[in-house]
């Protein structure tokens, strides 16, 4: 059995930046050193060292259970809300030590937004209230500010044209793809520096998926994106950088290698990466 020819993943003109970046990797938005996560006594992830370049899309790939979600959630301190979870090592957002004792995790989460696997709009709130919910949670009440933020976030999420006339209707009336874009708009409205996305299209059909992928390419101009995906084509299509994680019998989840997506998919340094991206394992 042979893998899909790697070159076909790439539309040749999709990322003109890619070639130039081989020389100049942008400064990291998030720096991770010696990162590990423990659930109770069970280690799930260990020894991750990695930089997430500013203004780029980084994809986290790897077989199920290798710790992609675990890594993602440690970046915005979401593990703090899980009893028994403990994060080891360090995470820096720019110069800010994310896990420093004086840091309030809610501030981190306002600066590092998150979009989940299943669209999770607030079911009892209208479209408008969903979009501005993050701002309200952070204490912003001025109508004018909320209105502006709602419009620009919905514009950014490519949702404004289809919902601007029904902002007061329930978010649950939207389709799954629209709900997911609403969740993206909700995360963007807080103007985060980084947007974390955990398999954001896995519950969506191919058309909705492709709209979100297009959207991500447009969004990355304003926000650094880190996306978990199981779909190799998606990783190849949308990401600039790519990190491959793995879990093995004798080793908990760890980073195997990371680098430019083009390089990970065409000439990976590690044979396990090659096996995975060509579909022979995982």
């Amino acid at each position: 059995m042979t893998g899909t020819p790697l070159k076909t993943f790439f539309a040749p003109d999709s990322r003109s930046t890619v070639a130039a970046e081989a020389e100049a990797r942008p400064a990291p938005a998030i720096t991770v050193r010696g990162l590990g996560v423990r659930f109770g006594s069970k280690l799930a992830l260990s020894g991750v060292d990695m930089d997430f370049p500013t203004g780029r899309i980084t994809a986290l790939i790897g077989p199920s259970g290798c710790g992609k979600t675990t890594l993602l959630r440690s970046l915005n301190r979401l593990h703090d809300t899980t009893p028994g979870a403990r994060v080891l090592g360090s995470v820096h957002l720019g110069d800010l030590d994310v896990y420093a004792p004086e840091i309030n995790p809610t501030e981190i989460r306002a600066r590092i937004g998150m979009v989940f696997q299943r669209p999770n709009p607030f079911p009892t709130l209208s479209i408008y209230d969903n979009v501005v919910s993050g701002l309200r949670l952070n204490g912003i009440r001025k109508k004018a500010i909320l209105n502006d933020a709602a419009e620009s976030a919905l514009q950014s999420a490519a949702l404004w044209d289809s919902v601007s006339h029904k902002l007061k209707t329930s978010a649950m009336r939207l389709s799954g793809g629209e709900q997911q874009r609403l969740c993206i708009a909700r995360a963007l409205a807080v103007e985060p520096d980084v947007l974390l996305m955990d398999e954001p299209t896995s519950a969506l059909d191919p058309i909705a998926t492709s709209r979100i992928e297009t959207l991500l390419r447009a969004l990355v101009k304003q926000v650094t994106i880190i996306i978990v995906t199981h779909n190799m084509q998606q990783a190849a299509r949308v990401s600039d950088y790519c990190a491959f994680l793995m879990v093995e019998e004798d080793r908990v989840g760890h980073l195997v290698e990371e680098g430019l997506t083009l390089q990970i998919f065409s000439k990976p340094a590690d044979p396990r990466t090659e096996e995975y991206v060509t579909g022979r394992i995982g």
Binding site: N76, L78, T81, T106, E107, I108, R109, A110, R111, G113, M114, F116, R118, N120, P121, F122, P123, S133, G134, L137, N138, C183, R186, A187, V190
Partner: peptide
């Protein structure tokens, strides 16, 4: 997922 929607926004 409902809880994390709020936590994820800085709630």
């Amino acid at each position: 997922t409902s809880r994390e929607a709020v936590f994820g926004l800085g709630g």
